[in-house]
Design a protein around this nucleic acid. Structure first.
Lengths: 210, 210, 210, 210
DNA sequence: TATGAATGAGAGTTCATTCAT
DNA sequence: AATGAATGAACTCTCATTCAT
């Protein structure tokens, strides 16, 4: 009995929490953190103002929880996409392809992330970067390193190049027009990056082999 | 007499206006637009709160005026740097080299620009983009087009590629550590972009084959 | 059966009620009424927030019940102490001696009472005074009146003097330093009051001995 | 010109500040600190809510400023009253007489002081005690010490006795009925304290003379 | 009987903006 | 032109109280 009750309650609480996080994503993405209104979030979630504070101790904490949630989802989305390919070049294409797709499918959450990563609030920016650390490692460890080891990519500092690629991803994926359509398409971006990474030798040899 | 007086007045007003813009750059860069405090700006400039409103009708207008000022200075800085070279590849290197240098020398103003370009406030973001339009054209018209015409760069959509390069510039130049030092250095970034743009033929050192 | 069940229930309810009153004493004494937190009280008592409202209809009512409990205990404590002596002077000494002792032993409850008696909330203050009415009567009827009748004390308005003595008791007993130790000791206070009350005759009797 | 302007402004600011302090005294005295409403204070003073914060950084700071103001006025009132007499006994009478008078004339301010001295907020209580330190010294140094030196008062610890007398003053002067009239009158209280302090010899000698 | 999620009035505080001097 | 006192909307956060389970 008690067990069931507890389970039901936890499920309800989970739903409420999720509803609040979704509403927060909507508000933060459209208004930015400073202009976001806690009252508006609670209303969007279908609850009263005070309910937000039953789940998150402060506006800050709400943002952090949201960032955690986004980073985890975003990472999982890209990890499975990348690891579905074996070839590093294809993995890179997948990274941009599915990366843009993630942004298109989770526009609000992605915008929150972009805003936070570029925030002038150093604490927030730092928190977001830390949450995204695994993705940097994913790019460096699962795309660049194998690519270099297989002679497909030029030899560069994997960490530095990972930062560069992440910067390009975050930069290009976040620039959208008024209707929310990205200015650049993922194929072009991936192509650009592939050209930048490929080894001259490999390119040439491919041609010469034939 | 009246003429002279007027000139003196205009000069004084110009100084005051500039002092306010500088103070605004300091405040906006460290606090972000929303957290920036008009009173703090006036104090930093050595004036009283009300004086700000003698020069700018609102906080918004102050930001826009500052963005205009920054964009103009930034553009002039890069235009003269680029045009000092003839070779498109060298111009691209200059673009990143002097672009990073501008950020290093005018950290606060650059930060204001980065913050505004990435703002979640669409009006501000749009205004900033419009102010930077000439720089997109500079990259497309003075670097990419000549490069392609001379066969140095692969054939791509100049506008799209200019957006990409600007994105990379804005992204890489704005990422700095706690001490304000950029995570990436301009040489590496320029190198990366050059690799992405060069024609395979040229890279392969056509000469070597023979 | 029903009878027994009812008894058990009443006992359990009595324990819960007492636990809540104790927790309330702890919270009210340290935070004051306005700053006291119902949730904190329930947690200190080992129950949930809602339980408080199963026993007391409101925060106000909880305070009043606590004041009643304290006043009753406090009165009983002092009544038995006083009545254990026959001599009015000794009773007065006992009053301060055991009064201070009560405060030392029931610090939290005593503090609640002091706070409430001195509250700026007239309703609370009045309620507390009414609850303490019997103690005023105890002082007037069991100490001052007998003392005057026996010629030990000067003739004064017993009610007025009782107020004065109660004021001195409440004032001196409530002033404690950071460690909770009273600034004044009961002997000195009792001595002071005895000097104030004694008849000149009695004093003079020293001289008559000669 | 500038001088005059500045003087006028300072005078106006002083008036505003005083109006706010008076309104604060009204509100704090009737509602207590926690229940006092900053908005109500500003309205009572004839200003908008925000104006309070142009003069006092917080509600706490407003209370402290008020306490300082009260303590200074109260001390000055009693110091001049006491020092107008030479005889320690008359000074003591004056102390209670004029002390009660001060309370009657500045009811609100006095109530704020009583509330704060008895506050359950230790920081506030401590601040108030510190502000009243000079009055303890006044009683000890200008009444008790001379009285003992002249053989009028029994030999006791002046500091301890000063605390006792201050406690009696604060306790008796603060107890008023619904109409604001004190329960005790200053003559009786002074008489009580004088009886407690007087030397036996003096008392006896009066009787023996006859 | 006990629970604790939900509520929403309320309060302190901030600050862009106005305007009389 | 410069000032800064005054304004009041807006916002975050608190918490006593309710009530379905």
């Amino acid at each position: 009995m008690v067990r069931i009750k507890t389970e039901v309650r936890e499920q309800v609480m989970g739903q409420t929490r999720q509803a609040l996080l979704n509403a927060a994503a909507e508000e933060f993405s459209s208004q930015g953190y400073d202009q976001a209104n806690i009252n508006a979030i609670s209303i969007k979630a279908g609850f009263a103002k005070g309910t937000v504070y039953n789940y998150f101790p402060s506006k800050q904490a709400l943002l952090k929880a949201l960032i955690d949630s986004i980073a985890q989802e975003h990472l999982e989305y890209l990890r499975s996409a990348i690891l579905s390919e074996d070839d590093p070049a294809l993995r890179l294409e997948r990274f941009f392809q599915d990366g843009f797709e993630y942004v298109a499918r989770h526009t609000q959450r992605a915008r929150v992330m972009f805003n936070t990563v570029n925030s002038s609030n150093q604490a927030q920016k730092g928190y977001c970067f830390r949450a995204y650390q695994p993705m940097f490692q994913l790019v460096a460890g699962q795309i660049l390193l194998p690519g270099m080891q297989q002679g497909l990519f030029r030899l560069t500092e994997p960490e530095q190049t990972a930062i560069l690629i992440m910067t390009i991803y975050l930069g290009t994926a976040s620039q959208v027009d008024e209707q929310g359509r990205p200015w650049l398409n993922p194929e072009n971006v991936a192509d650009f990056v592939l050209h930048a990474l490929r080894t001259v030798k490999e390119t040439r040899s491919l041609g010469e082999r034939r």
